[in-house]
Amino acid sequence: MRNPRRNAGPDKELGHASTYHLDSRLPSPSPIPMRPHDNRAWFLVLPALTLLGLVGALPLLAVINYGFHDIFSLQDVYWVGVQWFTDILQSDRFLASLGRSLLFSALALGIQVPLGIGVALLLLSYGKRAVWGLMLVALPLVVPWNMIPMFWLGLIDAKSGLLGPSLAAIGFDWKFTGWHTWALILVVDTWHWLGLVVVLAYAGLSAIPPAYGQAAAIDGASRWAMLRYIQLPKIAAALAIVFLLRFVDSFMIYTEAFAINAGGPSDATRFLSLELGEEIKGFSYGQAAARATIYFLIVLAVVWAFVAATREREG
C-alpha cells in the first residue's frame, strides 16, 4: 500500500480529503501500513553504528575521561576528580557566558525559523519558478565557514565596503558598541543558515498533497488556519530537525563570533565556545575536556527534552 502521507497524487486523495474538517488535525486517509518486525535489520545498521562508534562514541568517552584529569602531556596525567567541573560550574564567568549563549540561540531561532518558513511559503506561491529562490538561499551554505565573517567585514568596511560608508554615517559601530556586535553576528548567522531552514521547510511543504489545500479552500479556511492546522503540523518532523540543528550550531557559535570581535567589546559577545577555545589554545586540556563534557551534557539535555516532547505529541 502506497503511503498516502507522502506523495500520493491528488486524484487519489480528493475524494477522501474534501470530507475532512479543519477543527481536528487532519488524519491520514488510511493508517501507515505496519512495517514487519525483523531483527536481521541490525546487520544493515551495523556498519553505520560501527563508524559512529569510532568517530563519535569513542572520542566522547575519552573527553569525559580527560575531564577528570590534569593533563600536562600525554605521559604526564594526574587524577583530579571533579575539581574542574566544580571550578567551572561555580565561576560567574561560566554562568554569564551560558546566559549569553542561550540568549543568542533564542534570538537566532526566533528570527531564522519563522523567517525561513515565511520565505518557503513565499517561494511556494511562485510554483515552478521557486527553484531559483531555493538556489539563491542555498548559496551561503557553500561558502567556507571561516570566510563568512570576512565577507561581511568586507561589506561593512567603513572605507571600501559597499555598505560601510552608509552604516558609518548612521553611527553603526560594531567594534565598540555591544549590541551592535550582537546585531552583526545575528545578521551574519541568519545569512549563513537561512537557506537550510528554507530548503527543509520548502521540501516539507511541497510534499503536502494539494488535496489538503483544496479541501481547506472548500471549507472556507483562512490562510492562517491553513498554516496553523495543516501546513505546520505536516512539516513538524522536518522542522524538529531544523530546530535542533540550528539550536546546536548557534549555541556553539565560534567561527563567526571569534572573527568578528573575539568576544568583545568588553566580553559582550563572549559565548561558551569562545571560552573553550581559549582553554584549548592555552593547553589546559583537562579543564577544556571538563568544559566540553558540560557543554555536551547541556546539548544532550535539550535534545532529550525536545525528542521527548515531540514523541509525546505524536503519541
Partner: peptide
C-alpha cells in the same frame, strides 16, 4: 548535534 569542538582533542 554533538559540537565538533567537544570531540576535537
Amino acid at each position: 548535534v554533538t559540537p565538533p569542538v567537544v570531540l576535537s582533542l
